[in-house]
Amino acid sequence: MAEGVRPRVKVPRSAEAGEVVTIKTLISHKMESGQRKDSDGNQIPRSIINRFVCAFNGTNVIDVTMQPAISTNPYFEFEAKIPEAGEFQFTWYDDDGSVYEESKSVEVG
């Protein structure tokens, strides 16, 4: 597992039914592209998060494939419509097989 990985998510605690809310996500990760060399000239192996998924009550909201050119600490901001009270699940998939998860519940009313 890459060092110092910590997911952070910002979702409003409550919303009106049918309201569109803004969701911000950020995960600290070095996102090593695999194209750099260290001071001895050896290639630094690629180590990135290659997929990010957000779901609401099991329904997919966004599913992103990430490539090596994405910078460190990838940040995603997107909008989602809240049909009912429930829970957002956020999942990040690392090259090394690690999976980082976070969830936030939203109330309606």
Binding site: R6, R8, K10, K24, L26, S28, N73, Y75
Partner: peptide
């Protein structure tokens, strides 16, 4: 603070 990437380092 959420948007400020410098705060990641402050957390470290």
């Amino acid at each position: 603070d959420f948007d400020n990437p410098g705060m990641i380092f402050a957390e470290q």
